[in-house]
Simulated assay, not measured.
Amino acid sequence: MTATAPLPRHRRRRTVLLRWAVVLTAVLAALVGAGWIFAVHVLGSVKQTDLLGADAATRHADITGPVNVLLVGTDQRADQPVDAARSDSIIALHVTADHRTAYLISIPRDTLVHLPADPATGFAGGTNKINAAFQYGSQRGGGISGGVKLLAETIRTAYGIRFDAASVVDFAGFQQVVDALGGVNMCIDERTTSIHAGLTAAGKPAQPFTEDSAGRLHPVRGVTPVVYEPGCRHLSGAQALDYVRQRNLLARGDGDYGRQRHQQQFLEAVLAQTGSAGTLADPVKLDRVLTTVGHSMTVDTGGVSLPDWIFDMRGLNGGSVQTIRTNDGKFDSVNVPGLGSCQLLTAASRQLLHDVTTDSVGTFLAAHPDWRGGGATGGSSL
């Protein structure tokens, strides 16, 4: 297969896989727990559109059996066209047939795959990093829907997973949700130096590094980067976003897998805070959180109404959502001319994704218990 040319590099505004979970786990659970008046209120603010097209699993009027949801985070900024954004976070959310357990499986954005052709945009297909699928699908008028459709088709072609629903959340929405919660409590598990946030000698915010076309970082003279030291602390929305964006200067040198782990920890923290007594018992705060979530989402419900989704997923809560690391959080890299360093999924990771199609992820985890993510409240144990 011939590698497709890499698309132009753009300034990154990282979003996180976790916003999805807020939508389809914590938020659903919180809505049910808080009562239908809040559910009706927030549902009115959710944007709904066809994201999956013909590649969606059979559309249905109710939800039975196992469910797969494609969760996508993009790096699009408000001043950036849709077709300039790649999918920075890609998660397969698998809900078991009894709708009581959910698994969040992150697919590394640099995973090397074959991208199918997209006649709608004139894209001929080829080998590339999986996060390029969203950008190629969104070009020439494809927009967000085109990006999600090509990404979903890429995952189905590569791993056999068909999705029943999909969701996309924007950067501003992510930060606003955390701020609406009043921040989030997280345990930092490794010294993390920010390449995006820093301070000048006068205490003014400034970017501490520049990045050249080859992805190399260059310190900016007179700017000290923000450093997140190990330990538990309360983070604002801006701080949480900055922390989970980082992959370059992590103390463990674990790159994207470290960022993936931090995003999963963040998800668990948001789930815990959304379902906490302090949030559920405060009608004004809960209203603000859920309305913010609704405004930040674009969803394809697969033909099922949002109230039905909420009712059928009422058995899910923060404790029933499990995060899983692909490749057990270890690198399996290959250098591809024109694409740079790409990730390969191991045979075990491909088995994990196959087990999504047979609703047997629990069996896989029983055999690979160390693949579980987590640790939002106990970072030192990771």
Rank of each mutant, 00 (worst) to 15 (best):
A347Y: 08
W20E: 12
R314F: 06
H10P: 00
L306V: 08
R19H: 12
A61F: 13
G122D: 10
P225E: 12
V284M: 09
T326L: 13
R162M: 07
I37A: 15
V67Y: 03
D300K: 13
R233P: 04
T193M: 14
Q246H: 08
N131I: 00
R13E: 08
A132R: 00
W309A: 02
H218G: 07
A56L: 06
P81M: 06
L112C: 04
Q135H: 05
S276L: 08
K47F: 03
D88G: 01
A201M: 08
D359K: 11
H262N: 14
Q207F: 09
L93M: 15
T346F: 00
T157A: 14
T346N: 03
A78R: 15
W36N: 07
L365A: 05
I91G: 01
A56W: 04
Y257S: 02
D118H: 12
V321I: 12
K285Q: 15
R9Y: 14
D79H: 13
G142V: 03
V227L: 10
A206N: 12
Y228F: 15
L31P: 01
V226A: 04
P225R: 11
I105L: 14
D312E: 14
R109H: 01
E268I: 03
A376T: 11
H368M: 05
R162H: 06
Y159G: 08
D75H: 02
G122T: 01
H99K: 15
T377V: 09
D328P: 03
M297V: 13
N68G: 06
T377M: 12
R221D: 14
I130A: 00
L250T: 06
T192I: 01
R100I: 03
G203D: 11
V40C: 05
Q176N: 12
T326H: 03
V244S: 08
S296W: 10
S360Q: 10
V220H: 10
R12S: 05
L290E: 05
G231N: 11
S333M: 06
D212T: 10
T2G: 04
T326Y: 06
T2A: 10
F364D: 13
D164M: 00
P208W: 05
R247F: 04
Y243E: 05
T301C: 08
R191A: 09
S320Q: 14
A117D: 07
G231E: 00
R325G: 06
I91R: 08
I161F: 09
V42W: 04
A251K: 07
N185V: 08
A277Y: 08
R14M: 09
P208C: 13
